[in-house]
Design a binder for these strands. Sequence first.
DNA 1: CATCCAATCTGCATCGATTGCAGATTGACA
DNA 2: TGTCAATCTGCAATCGATGCAGATTGGATG
Lengths: 144, 144
Amino acid sequence: MRSPTELAERLRADGLKVTPQRQLLFRLLADGAEHPTADSLYEQASAEMPGISLRTVYTTLTDLTDMGEVTAISLGQGPMRFDTNTEHHHHLVCEHCNSVRDVYVEGFESLTVEPLDGFEPTDASIVFGGRCASCVGAPVPQAP
Amino acid sequence: MRSPTELAERLRADGLKVTPQRQLLFRLLADGAEHPTADSLYEQASAEMPGISLRTVYTTLTDLTDMGEVTAISLGQGPMRFDTNTEHHHHLVCEHCNSVRDVYVEGFESLTVEPLDGFEPTDASIVFGGRCASCVGAPVPQAP
DNA sequence: CATCCAATCTGCATCGATTGCAGATTGACA
DNA sequence: TGTCAATCTGCAATCGATGCAGATTGGATG
């Protein structure tokens, strides 16, 4: 994701408005936690701007996603996470504390994928499940 | 997933009941489409057993998942899909028609994954996005 | 075969995440 | 400063999934 300033320029260039709400959200995304949900971002935003609406957070996140500035990732369970890292990467998901981390994977070309039967892959995403450093050795997986 | 007959035996062995609803669902899963949703399975079941409840379909699918007889897969968008293939495999997802196919991947060991920082992966799932044979050359991705 | 009871089924209410909509508000340019 | 489309807010509605209560029923037992 570009810097809040660059994003603001881009909006203006497209004839869109640079509102305080958007500026705040851009800043929180740039500074804040790596993989926020719409709701966690809303919490943070509300602290600085009471009255901001959850609807606006959703709208802004979808707009950023459409602009390719963030990507939406789904962990299969629970709400969507948003990722400001637009490099090509993959994810580690801790089955115990549900935290998400970025990882980079090399050696993709040496994989054998069969049968393709005419399927033309354009992208691949790998989700590694397991235990993060601080949850190794913790009790069996549980429900949240 | 085991055969309907074997599943019935397993239920009985566990002191659970072999109801007509379960037998029907087992059979539909064994014979039917590869990656049904709860709802598509409910449609099929209703055709043979009018009055069967969607709730029962959900319950049975969760039970089978807990028993390890099927796995639940999420495509990030839309409802959960259920997979009767319990071998270790991965998925091709057509971005155009939303179809899902199983693929087998070799050469995993040669991947470099960094930084792990103490994370201990226990499993990995790869979702390949792209176009299936019949959708290659179709117009740009669209909303369903 | 009749009885019994826990397991199951159904129908409905509810939930969490997300989206649709309408009316009030407000950047940004003339 | 005025104008107006873009945006914001609040609320209703949707969608997939789950919780619950009361009615039903496998299947073991006498």
